[in-house]
Design a protein around this nucleic acid. Structure first.
Lengths: 231, 231
DNA sequence: TGTACATCAGTGAACGCGCGTTCACTGATGTAC
DNA sequence: TGTACATCAGTGAACGCGCGTTCACTGATGTAC
């Protein structure tokens, strides 16, 4: 009767059930990415994972706890990717412009690939201070790496306060991607995200904000193909 | 018994109950701005309006319908303000830079003043396609006015595709304000929004994106006072 | 090698709570005669 | 001026539904002797 007490939440030791945990997280990510966190029911998720509702509560304290776990998992991935991509050694003898022009498309693609999950994170973060805090910490890591990398080329930036420029440019870039993530539903017809064009536009804009010359290589697409879907 | 059938939703003709409707909308705006739409209960709102729950459903079809009404009311105000502020006649012999430098602080202030309500709108729009559609229409009105005004000074913009530049700059500006609206909780201590500094930073950034020279008049504040709170 | 028992892993029906919505009601104001 | 009735404006307790969470249960795998 006190049996229940002895079971910890999450991190089971047996390999079989550890695999099951991964299966649940994957299923959760799929369902949540598809329907959103609020609309996804625990029952749905566990059906997708081919497990039972009871098991869910042996792995997670609450439904909210699940999203926190997904965030943790995502954060790890994101930080690893960042540290790899933004490692200063891989950018020696490259200009600030190179960095911006190559990092932005990667970011845009990441946002596209994980759109549903990111959307769920954003919505939760906007409503739950603890969650926001958690997300913010991870976010700052990425921001700082990029800032350091760009400020090591401070001289190239024609701006009276390069640090401020990098920060506001990054904030505006991320905000734009966040807003597109929140509001541009792919299901809806009409404007479809053309990633290449979007990345181009953003690159151009960020370069301008940083006071960097734009090479003509970045085509300026006709304004008709420009992404317009916003709130 | 069929009495109920004969009552229309909303727009009562009697002046007394029309005043009451306004009182309900005001109360709703206060409660929703404070707690958010989901967390605000119909009972709370009607208590704040010193009315009863039953009356609520004589004025609104559903709780969602209330938010739609608030959006409609807000939209009207916003469009009126836009048409007044962005009227071409009041800007004759002013430069594109003047326009940007004066409009942005107004926008920032509007966002600050109506933060709670805008937050509720944004969250709803990100989840309800119909609502998003409605908000989008209003939004486009403002965007177009500003676009027209700036493109009438096309020659001043040093950019290969001025129309595209205006659009992406506006989108990034609005996105940034939206993200700040969603994520920077004023209750939380730490970074507090310094509107003047934020407006300055944004102005500088937008001018750069549009290919306009920055006058030294726009102070570049030390990076320590820079707004950093983002997701 | 067999028996008894403990623990692990998992199940899914039932519970319960919050809150949007309904509905049977009251009281005040107008209108007909 | 009084009476009967219709309509308007408003009330708030009760209902009901969705979904997160619980809990009494099953079956399989170890371990002691």
């Amino acid at each position: 009767v006190i049996r229940q007490r002895t079971r910890w939440h999450s991190t089971p030791k047996q390999p079989r059930s550890q695999a099951r945990l991964a299966r649940i997280l994957d299923a959760a990510e799929r369902v949540i990415a598809d329907k959103g966190f609020e609309q996804a029911t625990v029952a749905q998720i566990m059906a997708e994972a081919k497990s039972s509702v009871g098991l869910f509560y042996q792995r997670f304290k609450t439904k909210d706890d699940l999203l926190r776990c997904l965030l943790a998992r995502f954060t790890e991935e994101a930080i690893a990717l960042t540290d790899q991509t933004l490692d200063p050694h891989s950018w020696t003898s490259r200009t600030a412009e190179d960095i911006v022009a190559e990092v932005i498309p990667v970011l845009v693609e990441l946002y596209r690939a994980r759109r549903g999950l990111l959307r769920a994170f954003l919505l939760k973060a906007s409503v739950d201070p603890d969650f926001h805090q958690q997300a913010h910490i991870a976010e700052q890591h990425v921001a700082q790496r990029l800032e350091e990398l760009l400020l090591s080329r401070k001289r190239e930036l024609r701006h009276p306060d390069p640090a401020a420029a990098v920060r506001i440019a990054y904030q505006m870039l991320r905000s734009t991607l966040n807003v597109l993530t929140l509001f541009v539903t792919p299901r809806r017809s009409g404007y479809q995200l053309d990633n290449a064009a979007l990345a181009d536009q953003l690159t151009r804009a960020v370069l301008a904000m940083l006071g960097l010359k734009t090479r003509t290589k970045h085509r300026s697409r006709s304004s008709k193909t420009t992404q317009r879907s916003t709130l």
